[in-house]
């Protein structure tokens, strides 16, 4: 007993200062790929090496529509290896309330050889994403606070993940991220939950279980799709054994990209959804 106490005292506080201090970012972390849209000469090599088709091209009558989908991206950096116009940043992709907000789309006029001649339309301003999330976050916060007060109970549902997302969600309960300090608890039953945190491309064998879990969760309920698989099917997509995405099965309020998402990204998404972040600032 004495040893246990003394070890705890010696260890001191290990909890991250986030959100009062900004999230710490490693200088070696592989975050979002950043495309030099105006200088992009040929998107095809990057699209060919991308394992998830997060870089998608559609060529039609001399015009190419190129989309970078952060909901699909697994942040492997292979595109940046193949294409000088793409650079991997350390910045983590953040959660969004609609799938569309995770996509960046540009249009190009093409040369005869399939290279890009000229940028016709650049992606919408990147800061549009957090703004729209704030709005939805505000509405949700009002709803949550009206009904739930300040605490939030989460039921985690693995609907076919590789367990990578679970490793990081688990991390939220560690003393380092300590999610309980925000009044957020993981609970054992959907009947006690306000929110479902769902991972995986939803396997055919889990579809019914996910629906039943959703039905068992009292209204108003929130659904958060976690990870590339939950958001977009990731590497698996839709196949004979999967439904493809969480939102193919139940309605989703928030998409948290990453493979797996960093615990701070999950935390950030949840807090933004709760509107707490702003309040504390």
């Amino acid at each position: 007993m004495f040893e246990t106490l003394s070890k705890s005292l010696k260890t001191g506080i290990v909890t991250t200062g986030y959100p009062d201090t900004p999230a710490e970012v490693s200088q070696h972390a592989r975050g979002k790929p950043q495309v030099d849209w105006a200088g992009w000469k040929d998107a095809r090599p990057a699209a060919a090496v991308c394992p998830t088709a997060a870089i998608e091209l559609r060529d039609e009558s001399g015009v190419r529509t190129a989309t970078l989908d952060l909901g699909k991206c697994i942040y492997c950096g292979l595109c940046a290896d193949a294409d000088p116009a793409i650079r991997m940043t350390h910045e983590r992709a953040l959660a969004a309330c609609s799938r569309q907000n995770l996509r960046q789309t540009a249009r190009y006029r093409l040369n005869a050889d399939g290279t890009q001649q000229q940028l016709l339309a650049a992606p919408a301003a990147p800061d549009a994403t957090p703004e729209s999330l704030e709005t939805v976050g505000r509405q949700l916060r009002e709803r949550i606070q009206a009904v739930l007060g300040r605490s939030l109970h989460i039921r985690e549902v693995d609907a076919g993940s590789c367990n990578g997302c679970e490793v990081e969600i688990h991390g939220l309960n560690s003393p380092v991220y300590d999610i309980e300090r925000f009044g957020i608890h993981f609970v054992a039953s959907p009947r006690h939950a306000d929110m479902l945190l769902v991972t995986g491309p939803v396997t055919r064998n889990m579809e019914l279980a996910l629906r039943k879990t959703y039905d068992a969760t009292p209204d108003p309920r929130l659904v958060v799709a976690v990870g590339a698989c939950g958001c977009s099917g990731g590497l698996f997509g839709r196949n004979y054994a999967t439904c493809g995405t969480v939102d193919a099965v139940i309605p989703v309020d928030l998409y948290i990209p990453g493979c797996p998402p960093h615990p701070l990204v999950i935390l950030e998404g949840l807090l933004r959804l709760l509107g707490q972040l702003k309040e504390r600032r």
Partner: peptide, 14 residues
């Protein structure tokens, strides 16, 4: 096998 997601089959297509 609740999380069977066709992985081995998928290997054959990539």
């Amino acid at each position: 096998f609740y999380v069977h997601k066709g992985t081995e089959k998928l290997f054959e297509s990539i």
